[in-house]
Each structure stands twice: as C-alpha cells, then as structure tokens.
C-alpha cells in the first residue's frame, strides 16, 4: 500500500481572522478560520494550513490562540506558517497546537535553523516553505522571499535539495507566477522539485479547478496539493476534487470514514 495523495486546505489569516472573504452563507462567522477548518475536515480535507500574513509580533499571540482553539476541534494535521524565525517560534507554535511549522525566509537567511528545529522537534514537523518564480527569459526558477518581494538569486530546485538535506521533513512549494492566477499549478516546477528530493512535496499556487489538482498529481510525484481560493469561494469542494482524483485513478483518503 502506498500513501494517499493529500488535499490540503490553506487559509490566509491575519490577527486571527480569515483575510479573504468566503462564499459560504451558512457559516456562523465566515471570518473565523476555525469554523472553516472544521468544515473542510468534514468534507474530507487531509490537512489544514494557516498562513499568517500579518506575522507582526502583536498579532502573534492572537494567532497562537487561534491555533490552540483549532487543535481542540479539528482532528487532522495543522500546519502554521508565516513569520517563523527562530526555534523558539517553532516551539511556541507546536505547544499551541500546531503539528507542523512552515519556515520560509528565515531558512534562506540561516539554513541551520532547519537543522536546529529538526534536531529538537523531529523532521516530520518541519516544513521548508519555498516561494519560486520562473526566471525571466531563461530556464529554471529563483527563490523569492519576503512574501515574494525579493529575489534571493537561489535556484529553487537546488535550494529544495538543500532544505531536505538540512532536516526539512516536507517541502511546501509555491509558484509565485501561478499564485492566485487560477490557471493551474506550475507542473514543471513541481515535477522537477519532486524528482529532486526524497521528502514529500506539496504543490501550491494556481488551482482554478479540480482538474488542475488532477493535473499536478498525475503529472508529478507531488504527495499533496494545496488549495485555497477555489474552496473558500465555493468554486469546488474537497470532496468534488477527490471524486475527480478517483476518476483519474489517483489514490486519496476516502472522506467520512
């Protein structure tokens, strides 16, 4: 038996609230990430990601309170990313109730952070989060940091391999070109990175339809696909995506078992 391919629902949060609105009219509070996370769990989501896009120190406590509340009502893995800069940040997120922690810019500045965190908490909870953008006019992808504002000049494929060697347990690979565009995942980027590293790769950025999820999971070795906007606005659902995957003979965890 092999592992099921995963569908991961991602929520952008700031100050403990969902940032982008949702199309759900039946939620008591469409701005409460916990309520959405519970809804996605019921619909068969395999994991939840909270991406803290505020990440200011004053809002950090609010985020941890949200994580704690979520862990008490959502019984699938929860990853927290955004603004994680030190081992102490990792510890606080895990103690609050996160199962995994995504590290992005801070790993570029200090790759040993991945190793320190993995040694202390185990690789399985350290997610190396990489934002990649196609090089203008040439082949390959660069790693960008600071929410996609600064090009590090690092080759994304090589950097992914370094993250894996440094102790990252998983790669969350976001295509900046495709993020929010809804034109499909960057399949070539995902395929290239997933064949380069031995740790699980999560494809992110570009999902516009359930078919896009099928494309990236059939045309690459990615373990999982991250989905955000098209779930929140009701374009599709986790269960609908899993039905499409089943038709394409992609193994997923059956929902509601």
């Amino acid at each position: 038996m092999t592992l099921a391919r995963r569908i991961i629902a991602c929520l952008d949060v700031a100050g403990g609230r969902v940032v982008k609105g949702t199309g759900f009219v039946d939620l008591r509070d469409a701005g409460d990430p916990m309520e959405l996370a519970a809804r996605y769990e019921r619909d068969g989501a395999d994991e939840i990601v909270y991406l803290d896009i505020s990440a200011g120190p004053e809002q950090r406590a609010t985020l941890l309170e949200l994580v704690s509340r979520t862990a008490e009502g959502v019984f699938i893995p929860l990853t927290v990313g955004g603004g994680i800069r030190t081992c102490d940040d990792v510890r606080r997120a895990l103690r609050a109730g996160a199962d995994k922690v995504g590290i992005n810019s801070a790993a570029v500045e200090r790759p040993s952070l991945l190793t320190e965190a993995a040694d202390r908490f185990g690789s399985q909870c350290i997610v190396a989060s990489i934002d990649a953008k196609r090089r203008a006019g040439g082949g390959g992808w660069d790693v960008w940091v600071g929410g996609g504002r600064r090009n590090t000049g690092l080759d994304a494929v090589g950097w992914a391999a370094r993250c894996a060697a440094a102790g990252g347990g998983e790669i969350l690979l976001t295509s900046i070109d495709r993020d929010g565009a809804r034109t499909g995942y960057d399949v070539e980027l995902t395929r290239t990175v997933a064949s380069e590293v031995d740790i699980p790769v999560v494809a992110s950025g570009g999902a516009g339809t359930a078919a896009h999820v099928v494309d990236v999971l059939t045309q690459s070795d990615a373990d999982a696909a991250l989905v955000a906007g098209i779930l929140h606005d009701g374009t599709t659902s986790v269960s609908a995506i899993k039905r499409c995957l089943a038709e394409a003979d992609v193994l997923t965890r059956a929902s509601l078992v």
């Binding site: 347990g169 699980p200 373990d223």
Partner: peptide, 11 residues
C-alpha cells in the same frame, strides 16, 4: 523507503 519521513495517510 525512499520517501522518509512517512507523512500522510496510510491503511
């Protein structure tokens, strides 16, 4: 195994 850690859903 090739993919270690094992992260995900199994039977």
């Amino acid at each position: 195994a090739t993919r270690v850690p094992q992260i995900g859903w199994n039977t």
